[in-house]
Design a protein around this nucleic acid. Structure first.
Lengths: 112, 112
DNA sequence: TCGGTATATAGCGCATGTGTTATATAACAG
DNA sequence: CTGTTATATAACACATGCGCTATATACCGA
């Protein structure tokens, strides 16, 4: 499962948030989600691990999970490809829309 | 459907890439995916639009799609929450990145 | 070796997402 | 109006994801 699919689940994003604060054993993460079962969290951890977002180190019976910086670096690089677009747009947005409206096109938000 | 779920699909990410180059009508995007049907693309566009990642302006019968800068700005903000983590970690690794920093690699600083 | 703890895996329902074809809506051209 | 073009929606099949319970694996301490 790729990085974006791994990020699609809210529970997994919450796990990442918890690991951002500090590394945690799998059991700690299970306790952080009282509504979910231990196998459910274990599977989420597997998805995150296979996507490269987290890693586990073994400490006796426990697995201590931590974020994998490289993954977030790559994610940042992906978003950065669009960054030049939106930074430029924030400056030039007014003129851009002005040119469009002069061209006879109207932008409209239509929601059925 | 939220932003992360919208990004989970490779076709939709490809659409975003195409719109990064330039705005396109729905029909142009359909032609860009010869293996998919027109309704399939139309639905992907709806998902992206409802997630706030793109917007459509009407031009006669056509809908011209374009990226919505605000969405990528927010996405960038999300990744940036982890940025302090991975920059610190990468700094801790030290010598590996020395060549890159001498090569002109700069951190980004524009965070609204 | 044995019982307890910690985590992962297996197997199975159910919900949802993605594709299809067929059809609806809307605007333009004549 | 009528036909054509452009796009969206409907309805359905199929695959996949996520939850559960039950069980396996692995390590520790007595």
């Amino acid at each position: 499962m790729d990085v974006f699919t791994a990020l699609a689940d809210p529970t997994r994003r919450h796990v990442l948030d918890l690991l951002l604060i500090r590394d945690r054993a799998a059991g700690e993460l299970v306790e952080a989600f009282p509504t979910l079962s231990q196998p459910a969290i274990s599977r989420h951890l597997r998805v995150l691990r296979e996507a490269g977002l987290i890693q586990a180190r073994v400490d006796a019976q426990r697995r201590i999970y931590s974020l994998r910086p490289e993954a977030f670096q790559e994610l940042n690089a992906w978003v950065a490809r669009y960054q030049s677009f939106w930074t430029r747009s924030l400056d030039a947005l007014g003129a851009h829309l002005d040119a469009q409206s002069r061209n006879g096109t109207r932008r409209q938000e239509n929601q059925p």
